[in-house]
Amino acid sequence: MTTHYLVLSALLFAIGAVGVLVRRNAIVVFMCVELMLNACNLAFVTFARQHGNLDGQLIAFFVMVVAAAEVVVGLAIIVTIFRTRRSASVDDANLLKY
């Protein structure tokens, strides 16, 4: 059963990665990053069960904490960019390029 869970986690991670590469709306890109973090959490929980110790679950818990903090700051940045540029597309935020 462990293999099944790990393959599911890998699939979700790959789908999230494709989303980050393909999508242009910054918020959707962010959601795809969240999907990748969730996939990692699934792998952590699966390994915790495989090895019979709770460290994996603990790390998944800390990943959730960090992800929550990351979402707060990231969305604040997106809102700030949207205020000045009137756009949430990652292609429009190119000021650092020049």
Partner: peptide
């Protein structure tokens, strides 16, 4: 991006499939 994603998924799945994983110990 699609090619890279599919390749990545296949790579990960193969790596997981190659590993000999016993029965889970359970928490």
């Amino acid at each position: 991006a699609m090619i890279a994603g599919i390749g990545f998924a296949v790579l990960l799945a193969l790596a997981v499939g190659q590993a000999a994983i016993g029965d889970p110990a359970g928490v």
